[in-house]
Amino acid sequence: MIISVLKEIKKDEGRVAASPSAVRELCAHGHTVLIERNAGLLSGFSNEQYAAAGAEIVDVKEAYERADMVYKVKEILPKEYPYMRRGLIVFTYIHSNGSREQTDVCLEAGVTGIAYEDVIDRAGKFPMLRPMSEIAGKGGFLAACEYAKSTNGGRGRLYAKIDGLSAPRVTIIGAGCVGIGAAELAAGCGNMVSLVDVDYYSLEHAKMKLGPNVEFVQSNQENIERLVKQTDLLINCILWPKWRTDHLVSRELVRQMKDDAMIVDVACDEGGAIETCRCTYHSDPTYTEEGVLHYCVGNIPGAYPRDASVALCNSTLPYALAIADKGVVRALSEDAGLRRGLCFYQGQLTLEETGRKQDRPYISPERALGLE
Rank of each mutant, 00 (worst) to 15 (best):
G124V: 01
K125S: 12
K125C: 08
F126L: 14
R130I: 08
R130M: 08
P131H: 05
M132T: 00
M132L: 09
M132P: 01
S133V: 01
S133F: 00
S133N: 02
S133Q: 00
E134P: 00
I135R: 05
I135M: 12
A136R: 02
A136V: 13
G137P: 09
G137C: 13
G139D: 07
G139R: 10
G140K: 05
F141S: 11
L142N: 09
A143Y: 03
A143H: 00
Y147Q: 01
A148E: 05
A148R: 04
A148C: 10
K149E: 11
K149A: 12
K149Q: 14
S150F: 08
T151E: 06
N152Q: 08
N152R: 12
G153L: 00
G153H: 02
G153I: 03
G154L: 05
G154R: 04
G154E: 04
G154K: 03
G154H: 03
R155W: 13
R155Y: 15
R157N: 07
R157S: 03
R157C: 03
L158Q: 14
L158H: 08
Y159Q: 05
Y159I: 05
Y159M: 12
A160R: 13
K161H: 13
I162F: 10
G164R: 15
L165D: 12
L165T: 08
S166W: 10
S166E: 15
S166F: 13
A167H: 08
A167I: 07
P168W: 09
R169C: 06
V170A: 07
T171V: 15
T171Y: 09
I172M: 03
G174I: 00
A175D: 04
G176E: 03
G176I: 01
V178T: 14
G179M: 06
G179P: 02
I180N: 02
G181D: 00
A183R: 05
E184I: 06
E184D: 06
L185F: 11
L185C: 07
L185A: 06
A186I: 03
A186L: 08
A187E: 11
A187H: 09
C189A: 12
G190S: 11
V193N: 10
S194K: 08
D197E: 11
L203N: 11
L203P: 09
H205Y: 07
A206I: 01
A206K: 01
K207R: 15
K207V: 02
M208P: 02
M208W: 04
